[in-house]
Design a protein around this nucleic acid. Structure first.
Lengths: 231, 231
DNA sequence: TGTACATCAGTGAACGCGCGTTCACTGATGTAC
DNA sequence: TGTACATCAGTGAACGCGCGTTCACTGATGTAC
């Protein structure tokens, strides 16, 4: 940062973009060669080392690049939803199963749509990230799992704050959130890879989430909570 | 098969075993070299070509090797469950949500336990297979997806035959089964990789399944079936 | 404003290495007659 | 029961190639004084 701060390093950007492009074709960052990458970026192989310590370093740079704006978008949306939520009468719409369905439905829908919007805007980063989740680099796996854990924590906080599942305690909500986040990421991947219908994918994801909400609340009401199942 | 049929090809076995061993460490079949593989198996690099056309071929051989006995085990268990099921009074235990909980619970539990048993017996094949699900080989991806689809179809058939979700039609049950199968595979992977508590993993998987059952049935009863959500 | 120096992003040549694959060969086992 | 032949699983040497990485260098930009 000794140079001017607002001029992005050209070569670095070029390498990251080339990595995404190639990883789409070769299906993994770890399958890329440094020479191959430089070739794609139109640079000398050696230039890679000017910007990155190695492939993991490049992967982390890409993750940082994509995750930050997504998390911010979701956070803004959540704040907006919270404000809107404050105007609806609390607990009045609590249904027979212990779910605030009247509020859970639109919030779920909105979250899923926003998520799919974002995914559709960054298809390459998303696909590559999902593949790297089980990839060979321990560093990238850890980083990506942390990303998912962060999203799950955000979601759990929202559910509690908006009081969507008033009968379930925080720990159970967190577990549910993890399941849901994983499912949303997986659904997004399928949406992008199979190029299937956007609306259908969203709807199925929403259905999945609502089923988990209702199922968890129902079981709780019957006294068959998640504690019974251990974990 | 011109030679004796009961003497398994020694080198072929050795290469498949070596591939599993190495893929555990390197995290992907596709990251293995042929020379590396032969070295691990104590064979000449060239011998690989006596048995396999390429890496995909070897991968398919491993998949065939593992999937067949698992599917047979599950089929046997399902038959046993069906016979046992015939002795329980049909529809008598249908609960308020439209789930035959009294039968769905034990069947779910048994299925999950059996699955985890099998997974624990073939940890390497399982882990490698899950990783290859998003791997670079189109051939292996297709094969593994077909495996999961087969399992889902089996499960859907069982649910219908045992009449566990009497209010849901076949198409919805199939979708549910796909979600559940994916979730069981994912849970198995986490169980194996993180070496976390067996009983806790099983219980969480069971809870997940039951929640989806109850959630789907409840929504159906309220007239908010999956059709409403599209897909 | 000039000047000297440091840093930074980039180049190009060179290294040694392990790789996939091929070729020609071997010995053991199975098959036909 | 022999004998001739085919097949099969394995060996070992050799090929050419692309790879990761290092070294020494360049020119542009920023910084200190």
């Amino acid at each position: 940062m000794t140079k001017s701060n607002n001029v992005a390093a050209f070569g670095k950007r070029a390498l990251m973009a080339a990595a995404l492009r190639l990883a789409m074709l070769r299906r993994s960052l770890s399958l890329l060669g440094i020479r191959e990458l430089a070739r794609e970026a139109g640079l000398n192989p050696n230039t890679f080392y000017r910007h990155f310590k190695g492939m993991d370093d490049l992967g982390l740079a890409i993750i940082r690049d994509v995750v930050e704006p997504l998390r911010n978008s979701l956070r803004e949306m959540r704040i907006a939803a919270a404000i809107a939520g404050d105007n609806t009468p609390a607990l009045e719409s609590l249904d027979a199963y212990g779910v605030e369905l009247a509020r859970a439905l639109p919030v779920t829908r909105q979250t899923v749509r926003l998520f799919f919007d974002f995914v559709a805007e960054h298809p390459q980063a998303f696909i590559v990230g999902m593949r790297e989740l089980n990839g060979p680099s321990e560093v990238l796996r850890a980083a990506l799992q942390q990303v998912m854990e962060d999203f799950a924590a955000d979601m759990a906080e929202d559910i509690v704050r908006l009081n969507l599942l008033p009968t379930l305690d925080r720990a159970v909500v967190l577990k549910l959130s993890r399941m849901i986040i994983r499912q949303m990421f997986q659904a997004s991947l399928e949406f992008l890879e199979h190029g299937c219908d956007r609306a259908a994918c969203c709807s199925q994801a929403e259905a999945h989430i609502i089923m988990l909400f209702v199922g968890a609340a129902s079981l709780k009401k019957k006294g068959v909570g998640m504690e019974t199942f251990g974990g």
